[in-house]
Design a protein around this nucleic acid. Structure first.
Length: 233
DNA sequence: GCGACAG
DNA sequence: ATCTTGTCGC
């Protein structure tokens, strides 16, 4: 009999392992940057709040163009099988200019607070692969399906992935305990790495079409599509 | 005392 | 995350 690595909480996860994970998170957190640290600038906002003309003069800096999104979907039959997807959207056209997926067998269960140890490895692979495959389309900032600083120890998946990939990231949470209390279903934007919260919010607002920002939404959709094309959904 | 905990 | 139909609405 195999253990179900997707079962929440109660798995064969030892307290020792959890302690190791905590140490890793604390260690990686020392490298975390929560300010804007990127070499591009945000495109001018559509509905300019009568502000922002302060720094729109110098044209030396490149403007944000490629925004990435990552997500995982899971098999209905075999809960150990997952599909990780990375997409990159051109911000000016909102089109997906890069897409890559990878089906994997999960080895680590979902443990609240430690999502990164389950999902980050595959996502890092996809990023690394793209770095050599399609460097010109490599995302300038990445939206992650999971929280960033909004985490028990202030180091969620978005931070974890950002630090390891040394890439600006934004955390996008879709569920939290507050969700139930609000009549509307909010999303939770939190700082991942090398992007301040104000900037993160501005970037998310560039994709105001649906509740979930387009890069994450596309990653989600295409991740599920990939499953349908490659065997049992 | 126990329960709420990203995906 | 996943199991699940129709339905109301832009």
């Amino acid at each position: 009999m195999e253990e179900d690595a997707s079962t929440s909480g109660n798995s064969n996860i030892s307290p020792q392992l959890v302690n190791e994970w905590i140490e890793i998170q604390d260690s990686l957190k020392k490298r975390l940057i929560t300010d804007d640290e990127f070499d591009w600038k945000l495109p001018p906002m559509k509905d300019q709040d009568s502000e922002g003309m302060e720094e729109n003069q110098d044209s030396n800096v490149e403007i944000l163009k490629y925004v990435g999104g990552v997500d995982l979907s899971f098999s209905r039959n075999d809960s150990l099988i997952a599909c990780a997807t990375l997409v990159v959207l051109d911000i000016s056209t909102l089109e997906v200019v890069h897409e890559d997926s990878s089906i994997i067998k999960l080895r680590i269960p979902y443990v609240p607070g430690f999502l990164a140890f389950r999902e980050a490895p595959v996502l890092l692979e996809l990023l690394k692969k793209m770095e050599t495959t399609s460097p010109t389309l490599y995302p300038q900032v990445l939206m992650v399906d999971g929280n960033g600083l909004l985490h028990p120890r202030g180091f969620g998946l978005a931070c974890h992935l950002g630090v390891l990939a040394d890439l600006p990231t934004i955390g996008i949470g879709k569920n939290a305990m507050w969700t139930t209390k609000s009549s509307l279903k909010p999303i939770f934007i939190s700082v991942g790495h090398r992007v301040s919260l104000p900037s993160a919010i501005k970037i998310v607002k560039l994709f105001g079409r649906f509740r979930v920002p387009e890069p994450i939404r596309q990653a989600d959709i295409r991740s599920k599509d990939f499953f349908r094309k490659h065997g049992l959904s």
